[in-house]
Amino acid sequence: MNIKKHIPNLITLLNLFCGCIALVFVSKLDFEMAFYFVCLGIFLDFFDGFFARLFKVSSPLGLQLDSLADMVTSGVVPGYVMFMLLVGDNDPFSPQGMVAFLGFIVTLGSCYRLANFNIDTRQTDSFIGLPTPANALFILSMPLILSTYESGFIHQLLSNQWVLLGITIISAYILNAEIPLFSLKIKKFNFKDNALQIIFLLLSLLLLIFFSFLGVALIIIFYVLLSVAMNTIQKK
């Protein structure tokens, strides 16, 4: 029995397990613990592919498992978080509360993105559209930003139902938009070939240090805008 071939799939299932735990924490309105378990799931999601390549045991089963696990951790969880933000103190089955179900558009967009990713041969070294883990981190940072900024412009903005619905729609669009995003992979250990990635990672670290959970959202926005800017420059 080749144990090595099962290690990547086990790591993938642990990613799924983290997503399940995150869902429980969201139901308890413990968004911080949900955020940390999604982060752990994303961390495991990186290493399942790493070990599959290391042990040379990549398989179609592993590819499908990976997408199914991501569907929960980076698809269902952020959709549920958006639902909880939209529903607030309302009865979800009241006329006002039923709007909150539109938060699951995030989940639908994530599902389409993951299915399309499996058959899109253009996304081997870089991404087209925002990856679901990045989108999940953006959505899960929102309730934590709200709890950090209990008053002021940022709190009012993220407390507005129309703003949240707008973020939901934009989120689903960005996941599947034909927008090339630069790769964060560092293939050669020198600054010249990885200047963009290194500068981005250093700025991201500074944003996390100074802005905490708000920094997470700013990093994702910065990543998309920088990619769009780089695409525009390259076209010219």
Rank of each mutant, 00 (worst) to 15 (best):
G79K: 04
N231G: 04
V76C: 05
L218I: 13
D70H: 04
V87Q: 06
V106P: 14
F189T: 12
I233W: 10
F51T: 15
V106S: 07
F46I: 14
R113M: 01
D125H: 09
F93W: 10
F43E: 09
N190T: 10
E32R: 14
A69V: 15
I11D: 08
G103L: 09
F93R: 03
I167S: 11
R122S: 13
G103N: 10
L13H: 10
D30W: 01
I221D: 09
G49D: 15
L65E: 09
F43Y: 05
I42C: 04
V228W: 05
M84K: 15
F83G: 04
L130I: 08
S141M: 00
L68M: 15
R122W: 01
K235S: 12
S159F: 00
T132G: 02
G97L: 03
F31Q: 11
V228C: 03
Q197S: 11
L157K: 08
H6T: 03
K4W: 00
I11K: 07
I154T: 14
K188M: 03
S59H: 06
F101S: 03
L63K: 15
S204L: 00
A22M: 02
L164P: 13
F93G: 08
L108S: 10
G62Q: 14
W162C: 04
T232D: 07
F46R: 04
Q96M: 05
A195W: 09
F191T: 12
E32W: 00
C39W: 05
L23K: 05
F211Q: 09
V216A: 04
V72H: 08
F104E: 03
K4V: 05
L10A: 12
A217N: 11
F93D: 15
L214M: 10
L114F: 01
V38S: 03
A115H: 04
S110E: 07
Q156H: 11
G49Q: 06
F101K: 05
V76H: 12
D45E: 07
F117V: 11
I198G: 07
M82P: 13
V216F: 04
R113Y: 03
L225G: 02
L203F: 05
N194M: 02
K4C: 00
A134E: 11
N9V: 06
Q161T: 15
L146Y: 08
L208Y: 11
V163R: 08
L208E: 14
N9D: 13
N90R: 12
S204W: 01
L208D: 14
S151V: 00
S74I: 01
L181N: 03
G152H: 05
I7A: 01
D30I: 05
M33E: 14
S147G: 06
I139C: 02
C111Y: 06
Q156E: 15
I220L: 02
N194W: 07
D193R: 04
I209N: 07
A229H: 07
G103P: 13
A136W: 10
F55G: 09
D30F: 01
S227Y: 01
G215C: 02
T132E: 11
L203D: 04
L214Y: 14
L225H: 08
L10W: 08
D125Y: 06
V106L: 01
P8I: 01
F51A: 11
A52K: 03
L208P: 07
L208T: 12
T168H: 02
T121V: 06
